[in-house]
Design a protein around this nucleic acid. Structure first.
Lengths: 176, 176
DNA sequence: TTGTTGAGTCTGCGAAGAGAACCTAGCCTG
DNA sequence: CAGGCTAGGTTCTCTTCGCAGACTCAACAA
């Protein structure tokens, strides 16, 4: 349906438009972690809060939503249900991070760093991530495989990877 | 920083329980970026897709939701509404990242990395972030201020920062 | 004037979220 | 062994949000 002008494409489309977003890792990750309270729950579990009521109390998640999120996270293998028993109480479940769950820490650090920069109160950030061994605050660094350190978003660009899929509907603009 | 022995709190509460999550940078960031489609929109804008219909088509966001998200992002100063004019058409708005918006790239990279590792198809990831200058793929590194490179979540721990607020309800455990 | 195009609104239904009350095991005390 | 306590959910109701698809609106072109 492109009324070709001969030379210039009718619209200046980005390359990205030709690639399907259906298997995008970002979208898939958000499909698991992107629900409204999920990352808040993970934040608290990282902080050592592992029990249902503590999570309700601290994170402010509605109980029903927490029930739901916890079971999704367990199903996805991000949390695992463990059992603890306080003396004089019956055994109860607590929620702990799996390896897969632990690996979300970069996401949480990235969110915190952005928030510290743009939406923190003037007194400063309320939470710091520090190196357990030396106590120094940790930060994310972006680096390329050639060892260059990257400081600005503009230095980074996206390109289709090995699993990229062409879109069916995209009538490729003649470019090979 | 361990719980004082003398007190033996009735429950083994984490320190974190005593700190209010109300000014948490992660939660605030999620309050802005955490809606279901917001980061998908940003992903596409990073990829150079800037026009309403292109975003609808590529990202699959429902039009109404896109309208809403774009205006939130503009209000928050993450996107800015710019004007373009195709020859023979009237001026129309396009959406571009501000500095604040560009700075979300670490979040997107963190999400992609996690997704590539845990939810990608066997063919490999569909999208790569590469260094614009040298073409090498970029990755996130976690490092502490003392220069140690961190490879595991367990090496990182959280602690209250300068802006941390005690919770009203938390009966402080005697620690000054 | 009419048609076209990009960028949105309008409408209506179903799904999801927010609160608050209620239920359910074990353990303990009387 | 009845009754209460407690942590961890369920159930219920109400409101909001998401979503698809049709519709509107403002230049510009013919």
């Amino acid at each position: 349906m492109d009324n070709q002008r001969g030379v210039t494409a009718k619209r200046r489309r980005t390359d990205l438009m030709d690639w399907s977003p259906e298997n995008c890792s970002i979208a898939r990750t958000l499909g698991i972690l992107g629900e409204k309270w999920t990352l808040v729950v993970l934040r608290d579990v990282f902080g050592g809060i592992r029990r249902f009521n503590d999570l309700v109390e601290h994170s402010g998640v509605p109980r029903q939503v927490l029930t739901n999120r916890l079971s999704v996270l367990v199903d996805e293998g991000i949390l695992r249900r463990d059992t603890y028993q306080e003396p004089g109480s019956r055994p109860r479940p607590e929620y702990r991070l799996t390896e897969k769950g632990l690996d979300t820490y970069r996401i949480l650090i990235a969110l915190r760093e952005w928030g510290d920069r743009y939406v923190a109160d003037p007194e400063g950030p309320p939470l710091e991530h520090v190196h357990r061994d030396c106590g120094a605050p940790v930060t994310l660094t972006v680096r390329c495989a050639d060892g260059h350190e990257i400081h600005e978003a503009r230095e980074v660009t996206g390109r289709p990877g090995p699993g990229a899929l062409r879109r069916h509907s995209a009538a490729a603009s003649g470019t090979a």
